[in-house]
């Protein structure tokens, strides 16, 4: 994967995990990746009854601030899995 410089200061993996677990009820978030590309597995009862787009929108809205701007911390989410349990 290509590398994408960012002006974000700090631990991006922790920032993603914190943002997701803070925004989605009872969520557990596993993040892997680097250089702007990340893979997320998020487990939360909040996804119950939601389709894939709706579930993933919840996650994306939680990390939207990390994906904004010219040199964002998160350039792309290569893989996003949402589970209810």
């Amino acid at each position: 994967m290509s590398s994408h410089p960012t002006d974000f200061q700090g631990d991006i993996l922790a920032a993603i995990r914190g943002a997701v677990e803070g925004a989605i009820k009872d969520a557990r978030c596993e993040v892997t990746g680097g250089n702007g590309h990340y893979a997320l597995v998020v487990t939360s009862p909040a996804f119950t009854g939601l389709n894939m787009v709706a579930s993933q929108r919840l996650v994306y809205s939680a990390i939207a601030h990390l994906m904004k701007g010219a040199a964002p911390a998160v350039h792309a989410v290569d893989s996003l899995q949402t589970k209810t349990a």
Partner: peptide, 19 residues
Amino acid sequence: QWPTIPQLYVDGEFVGGCD
């Protein structure tokens, strides 16, 4: 309300991104 490109629409409905 989707942060990445590409985005696919079918029948006016958002279907999703690559994943």
